[in-house]
């Protein structure tokens, strides 16, 4: 058994197409890939919201904000 469908290279390359593993499962792989991508955005939205909420709480200290503004 070979995950790419070829157990040896005793083939005529003119007859060979795809050589990646798990041919036939492309749609499933893409679904997994899309889930990874969408999941990444979800994590990022949640974390950035937390980060900005914390930053907003710190921002009540006007002296600190002024220091940041002056630092450029």
């Amino acid at each position: 058994m070979s995950t790419i469908g070829y157990e040896s290279w005793a083939v005529d390359l003119a007859d060979v197409g795809a050589i990646y593993p798990f041919q036939g499962a492309e749609v499933l792989m893409v679904i997994l890939g899309v889930a990874f991508w969408i999941g990444w955005h979800r994590i990022q939205f949640v974390r950035e919201a937390e980060h900005l909420e914390n930053a907003k709480k710190r921002a009540v200290d006007h002296e600190r904000i002024q220091e940041s503004v002056e630092r450029y």
Partner: peptide, 18 residues
């Protein structure tokens, strides 16, 4: 090696097709 036919290819360092 074992590859038959006349189709040229790029290979990895092991001379297997990629």
């Amino acid at each position: 090696g074992q590859i038959t036919g006349t189709t040229w290819t790029a290979t990895n360092i092991y001379l297997a097709p990629t």
